[in-house]
């Protein structure tokens, strides 16, 4: 028989105990009653709708900005703007997202954005989207920069000699070549946005039917002692997450197959 290595002995039980088992615990605790009550709750569907809409726009904004970052990465890597932006992609890693939420609240809340309404931009769906964007943008930027790193710079060189300005070359060559990375960046930011809780609740609030998203819905239901409903909403989140991961995987395979030899 094959000798089992220490690493296998370490990995298999811990992985199943600490990663797979908790996920299974959610799925295992889903009850028919909990499902019926959750799906009959209009507030749940509002939370689903709010989550999808805000994550959609947050990821869109994230990718747009990340493409802007990619432009600096390729054409102006020596500039101060690029260096600051590059640093800022990594810097928030250790930042608690409550800090991000508070930062947004102070920047765009009543004090600075009094003209936008009684609470500034805070506690609106826009605030939810901005909070999601704030935490997911670095992911999009890093995804795009990593792929931009692998672009053959001669492609841009040739495009320039054929008449393209840097902006033209970026639009006509770099963005199409980055296609797959842009898609991944979007899906990753979307996923990251779905999962955000702390920044969303600090800046966007947790008003049922208004600014409540799935993450905050689960939190509220646990607080209210509605465990059945919290479990159902959580299982719904797991399903969404699974769908996103599968999208990325299948798309990746599709690209690998259709790229041919280059």
């Amino acid at each position: 028989m094959r000798k089992v290595s220490t690493w296998e002995l370490l990995f298999v039980p811990l992985f199943f105990l600490l990663i797979v088992y908790p996920i299974a615990a959610i799925v295992g605790n889903v009850t028919v009653e909990g499902m019926e009550r959750t799906f009959a709750d209009p507030i749940f569907w509002d939370a689903v709708k709010n989550t999808l809409i805000t994550a959609f726009f947050a990821a869109l904004l994230g990718v747009l900005l990340a493409l802007g970052f990619g432009y600096f990465y390729i054409f102006h890597p020596g500039t101060l703007v690029y260096k600051i932006a590059d640093f800022m992609n990594d810097f928030p890693i250790a930042l608690p997202h409550t800090v991000a939420g508070l930062a947004l609240l102070l920047a765009f809340g009543r004090k600075m954005f009094w003209f936008a309404g009684p609470t500034g931009l805070a506690f609106t769906l826009l605030a939810v989207a901005l909070a999601m964007f704030f935490v997911s943008y670095p992911l999009a930027a890093r995804t795009i920069a990593a792929s931009a790193d692998e672009i053959d710079m001669d492609l841009i060189a040739v495009a320039r000699t054929l008449g393209d300005s840097p902006a033209n070359a970026y639009r006509r060559v770099v963005i199409p070549v980055l296609g797959e990375a842009i898609f991944s960046a979007y899906v990753l930011s979307f996923a990251r946005s779905l999962s955000e809780f702390a920044a969303v609740i600090m800046f966007g609030g947790n008003v049922p039917g208004m600014t409540q998203v799935l993450a905050s819905y689960v939190f509220s239901k646990v607080e209210e002692g509605e465990i059945g409903m919290a479990v159902t909403a959580s299982a719904f989140c797991i399903l969404l997450s699974l769908l996103l991961v599968l999208t990325l995987r299948l798309r990746g395979k599709y690209y690998a197959r259709n790229k041919g030899c280059i």
Binding site: D152, L155, A157, A159, L162, G163, P176
Partner: peptide, 27 residues
């Protein structure tokens, strides 16, 4: 570069992989 009107064939041809041959030539 875009104002010099120089034709350039780099070391590894650098064809635009997302375009057809025709679109490459007519770039």
């Amino acid at each position: 570069p875009e104002e010099r009107y120089i034709g350039y064939v780099p070391q590894h041809t650098a064809l635009f992989s997302h375009l057809t041959v025709k679109e490459n030539i007519l770039y």
